[in-house]
């Protein structure tokens, strides 16, 4: 859309009015692996979002599964949460499971 586009009411449109919806894309690189956030695409429908995600994020890698999620459906923490939410508790050693040895043969833990 060009910036000259005008809406039915005669006023200039905003980006939100002329751009397609935003979708977050998650890709899985192998069976059993987690779906990881890859980025986002614009699209008009779920099928369209899936195709755009495939074309932008899944064509070169060895992706076995894709998720697309409307960006608006993501509930994100706020920057002001950083203190109470994410205090790492480094002073409480018992919170960190570093006293165990992972048995050999266990992968993907």
């Amino acid at each position: 859309m060009t910036k000259d586009t005008v809406s039915a009411t005669g006023g200039a449109t905003t980006a939100a009015e002329t751009q397609w919806d935003l979708w977050e894309v998650f890709t899985q690189e192998g069976e059993g692996a987690p779906h990881e956030h890859a980025g986002s695409v614009h699209a008009t429908t779920p099928e369209h979002a899936m195709q755009n995600a495939r074309d932008v994020y899944a064509r070169r890698g060895k992706i076995v599964s894709l998720w697309v999620v409307p960006s608006g459906a993501i509930i994100a923490s706020a920057p002001s949460d950083s203190g109470p939410f994410f205090d790492p508790g480094n002073d409480k050693a018992y919170r960190h499971p570093q006293f165990y040895k992972t048995p050999r043969g266990v992968r993907g833990l």
Partner: peptide
Amino acid sequence: PILEEDIALAN
């Protein structure tokens, strides 16, 4: 007309 479709057509 849009980046995603540019990539799709090139693919």
